[in-house]
């Protein structure tokens, strides 16, 4: 878990193994827990936003993730915190989506593509808007695999660990997700030109 270990170190000032912040947070120090949240908020909220597709759901999911972190601090190995946070964020986002179903299918894609800023000219800006929205066209598992591998930079094995799947399943999800994103962007870019 090379990348996940680096993600934890990168989030703070020093490696958490030598850091007293998790211990202080475990002891009930709210300032220490606030610091712990600040270290990992980009991971949690960024992942949640890309998975959920909107800030309301992403903030709800992130709040739940950090509350679970607080409740589980005593039994967590904080050296592997990034992996735990990715896994819980993905699971909580799935729960939030189940409670508020708003899945956008490929059939809704024209409306979705038209929802871009009308001031933006066709071409590059529109293509970027399509790319930004393209993960919403994917199934939950495809989206999670694409996000963790291609946007967060985890290895295929790490993605499999986070999602609780086999490497072969993740590879299949990744290839489908990449091809769907490409089809979506190409189809609606051409249609609007």
């Amino acid at each position: 878990m090379k990348i996940l270990a680096l993600a934890s170190v990168d989030a703070g000032d020093q490696p958490e193994g030598r850091d007293s912040t998790p211990d202080a947070a475990r002891a009930g120090d709210r300032a220490a827990f606030d610091l712990l949240m600040r270290r990992h908020e980009r991971l949690v909220l960024g992942t949640a936003y890309r998975l959920a597709g909107n800030f309301e759901d992403a903030q709800d999911a992130s709040q739940e993730v950090f509350l679970r972190l607080y409740r589980n601090l005593a039994k967590l190995d904080t050296r592997n915190l990034a992996a735990w946070l990715y896994r819980v964020t993905v699971n909580v986002c799935h729960d939030v989506r189940r409670r508020r179903p708003g899945t956008v299918s490929m059939d809704d894609a024209p409306d979705l593509a038209a929802a871009g800023d009308p001031q933006q000219s066709a071409g590059e800006a529109e293509r970027r808007a399509l790319l930004r929205r393209s993960p919403r066209m994917l199934s939950e598992k495809e989206r999670a695999a694409l996000l963790l591998r291609d946007l967060e930079g985890l290895s295929t094995a790490e993605v499999a660990g986070v999602l609780g799947s086999s490497v072969a399943t993740v590879r299949s999800q990744l290839s489908k997700a990449r091809l769907k994103v490409r089809d979506f962007v190409e189809r609606y870019s051409r249609r609007r030109v």
Binding site: R42, S62, F66
Partner: peptide
């Protein structure tokens, strides 16, 4: 402000 909002909500919940 999105990060701050989440932190604020979590700390309020813990309080």
């Amino acid at each position: 402000e999105h990060y701050a909002a989440v932190r604020g909500r979590v700390l309020a919940q813990l309080a």
